[in-house]
Design a protein around this nucleic acid. Structure first.
Lengths: 334, 334
DNA sequence: CTGAAAGCGCTTACAG
DNA sequence: CTGAAAGCGCTTACAG
């Protein structure tokens, strides 16, 4: 706790021989000020290295100048580029960034609307009734990778999951002649997983491959979880020649489990992921995946949120395109 | 911006038939209140779902209940576990987490001391004169992976870089008989890099291997930078049989450059990293490295910072132990 | 145990 | 163009 109290607007005003109102006006450019006065004020501000106390300003303006992001936990390779995009956007817009990780289900979010001018919300961090409550009080929110509940039509931004997954499965079928393709689902709260599954299903159907429910299981978009799921599928003697791991983290776990079981990737089994996170090109073999513009998703979300905060104008949804990235885990370029 | 103004302490007081003071006292447990009154107050609070306005409280208590972390940019695999540890610590202590990425050198930090009760500072994000300024006003700060300037003896937490690097190099020399070992430095502002270099030097010396300055270059603790550095060393025809990449990110870049040049890892060249970030076990070949307890570093830093904020009691420094993690990029277990 | 009053550091009508 | 005053929503001595 600072011993030496920071200087206030009063002392600056006194120094410049004006009223606090005038200092406020030059700082905020909120009313015309005679140039000569302005000079004196600026000099005093500089001399004291004055910066206004945010809490005081917040109290009267009712704006916090902060944007919050709510996420269930800080994990996964996905997280870094996403946060990077959000941070960049927030900074550009002149806001500060508050991180809420609702880890362990602790409900700190109660005050989310007090401490923040708007919220960016990840799947799994805020439940629908809370969302509705926020909507009813007109609080600015943008959803990430998640469509809003009917009663709170907030804008959302996500990526083309379905067509991305379809490209992936088409490739596996058409180029590598795989037919027994496992799909590992993500957490139930992630719509990404749902759409990817639909893409998977549709690609199968388009190629006349009958759906086998024993090939679909939970991978949690997570290395460890995908690893153990694959282990048990292997132990159960399941017959398959490819796996679409759900995302890249899960794909890393899958490849490890396969190797440990003596199955060679991609010779025996093709493995593909989703997202193209930074490490995907480095793993063994380099991962064939779909590039999701994660960082850009974060940026867009902030852009929309800031508009919401400022003008109340808003778009309904943004769907960013995905792109097939062929490396070697599918069987190409060996 | 919320249309429906949130309810204030006044309305709660009115509802409960008491004064705002009393409501404040039951909320903060700051003075004894007759049980029966307390009941009424609690009922009113619950009825209105009241939560006090943070800015108002801040203004009078001069505490923000926020901890800030300053970092130069959100990147590197290192970042995720570190932030995870910090987040967990902050949450545990009942604070909120503010992220300042001083990307592009934008100086938002000006108000860091206003908006935050204490700061966790990464190398490269805040310069020494700013640090001294903060110290002079008794502002709580903990440094990460960085020792403080003489005039501002803040506590810091870091890991055993030197002995970690030494273990690594010893292993390369003793087990794999490497003698021409490249060391790739990190950014100049990172003391980690310095200490690792010292460990490298000492291990060399202990084995009677003469130091060759042409084997030390900049890798930036970064995939891309390490990749190009290795490319140019290769192009220059430099003779070497191992590379200590500085950290794991750089190691990934190094391995890629080596492979692209037709050098096989680890047969032709051993490669080792530092940190043991999550992806290191997945790359090809699995990376031999040193495990730095990154998440724990974050947690410790918060713990110390919170003590600083509360009691002003403090420790000088914390040095967390590192541990050799042998996988295959060094040449083991092939 | 409880209330009335002052005050935290700003901004913003309202006068002039 | 500028100042005096009120007020943002709390907390905390000060009385009682």
């Amino acid at each position: 706790m600072p011993k030496r109290r920071p200087v206030t607007i009063i002392e600056v005003a006194r120094r410049a021989g004006v009223s606090p109102s005038t200092v406020s006006r030059v700082m905020n450019g909120t009313a015309p000020v005679v140039p000569e006065t302005e000079q004196r004020v600026r000099a005093a501000i500089a001399e004291f290295n004055f910066s206004p106390h945010p809490a005081a300003r917040q109290l009267v303006t009712q704006r916090t100048n902060m944007i919050g992001v709510m996420l269930p936990e800080i994990s996964g390779a996905f997280f870094q580029p996403m946060l990077k995009g959000i941070e960049a956007g927030v900074r550009e817009a002149g806001f500060d960034l508050l991180i809420y990780s609702t880890q362990n289900g602790r409900a700190t979010r109660q005050q989310g609307e007090h401490i923040t001018d708007g919220l960016i919300i990840f799947p799994g961090s805020v439940d629908d009734t809370e969302l509705v409550r926020l909507y009813q009080m007109d609080f600015p929110v943008v959803l990430l990778h998640k469509t809003p509940p009917f009663e709170s039509p907030y804008p959302f931004v996500t990526v083309e999951n379905k067509s991305g997954a379809e490209m992936l499965i088409n490739h596996l079928i058409e180029v590598h002649h795989r037919r027994r393709i496992i799909y590992l689902r993500g957490p139930a709260s992630h719509e990404d997983s749902l759409w990817r599954e639909r893409g998977y299903l549709e690609a199968l159907e388009n190629h006349g491959i009958p759906f086998d429910s024993s090939l679909v299981a939970d991978g949690g978009f997570d290395e460890i979880e995908a690893f153990s799921m694959l282990e048990s599928m292997l132990a159960a003697g399941l017959d398959f020649d490819a796996v679409f791991a759900g995302d890249d983290d899960a794909a890393a776990g899958v490849i490890l489990a396969l190797r440990q079981a003596g199955r060679e990737v991609p010779r025996d089994v093709s493995v593909v992921g989703f997202d193209d996170v930074p490490f995907s090109r480095f793993i063994n073999p380099p991962l064939t995946t779909v590039r999701a513009p994660i960082e850009q998703v974060g940026r867009e979300a902030v852009r929309i949120l800031v508009k919401l905060i400022q003008n109340n104008s808003f778009v309904q949804a943004i769907l960013l395109p995905t792109e097939l990235v062929i490396r070697q885990s599918c069987g190409c370029g060996e």
